[in-house]
Amino acid sequence: MVDEGLTSGPPDDEGLTAGDTWIELSVRADLEAVEAVSEILSRFAPGGTSVQPGFELIDEGLGARIDPNQPAIVRAYLPGRDRTAARLAVRQAREALGHLQAFNLRPIGELDVSVVHEADWAHAWKAHFPVLRIGRRLVIRPTWRRHRRRADDVVLALDPGMAFGTGLHPTTRLCLAGLEHWADEGLCAAARVLDVGCGSGILMIAAGLFGAGQLVGVDTDPIAVEASAANAARNDLVVDVRNGSLPSRSGPFDLVVANLIASLLIALASDLQAELRPGGRLLASGIFIDRERDVRNAFESEGLRPLRRTAEGEWIALEFERSPI
């Protein structure tokens, strides 16, 4: 969407063209100067500003810490229709930023100006979500897309949003493929299923579409409760989702699926084992390859027997069985 080539237009014009466009003002600034730079840009762009800080991942990628040594990029947008007003605003913003340099704040970069073409902002993001075929017959269909169903397709309708589980991440796909494998074994029919960390509800909904009889989910994120219920309704299913963690107090279950992370799986190993009926199956996912041995050891210590291992990239999913006796 950002047409950077237009910044190299005539120097007196900054590439500011009329039409259905926005003028993007962006400044690379030390974190210390971000507040001041944002304030200056917001004088000209009443719609607000965006700030993209440098950051580093922590806790196995589950957390992020803003890196004060990396500059942030502050952006703001002017309507491109009024060329004269836009040119004046750019000049004034550049002047105000110049003054800022004198106020003892750390370095601020040049004001960059580029043209962004008008788009259907409310819908453009949808291009990132295609219809996904996972395994042999499971299909994840974003609700706004059509899908020509094959004879044995199991189609799961989903609206991606504020809860993890869109089908785009390997950890989710490994679980979905594992559920299909259980269905092929005949384990899903009328099964009682628990989804630990259910997010969007995608996994228990898949289990339901494969014929499971009772679907229970838990998630510490309150958003998950609403998202799971809404997505279940899109698939004509009813789910029982609670905001919280284990124990679910609804066990024992025939099948438990837990798409978490290694450290959480290890911490919950005993609780997960306790949710299974004798002979029940557990699918544990979200395991980065270098933690596989630790997770396997934790579940084996709880008396669970490893049955299967699947991998996609550097992500691993492990299937276990509780002793039938």
Binding site: E24, T49, V51, Q52, F55, L57, Y77, W121, L260, S285
Partner: peptide, 27 residues
């Protein structure tokens, strides 16, 4: 869920009046 982070960013917006137009749409 195993929520792995891709990016973090901040939007400074007028309370109660955010629209899909820039900076929201572009960010």
């Amino acid at each position: 869920m195993a929520k792995k982070i891709r990016i973090i960013l901040t939007l400074q917006l007028p309370a109660g009046k955010a629209t899909p137009a820039p900076p929201v749409g572009t960010a």
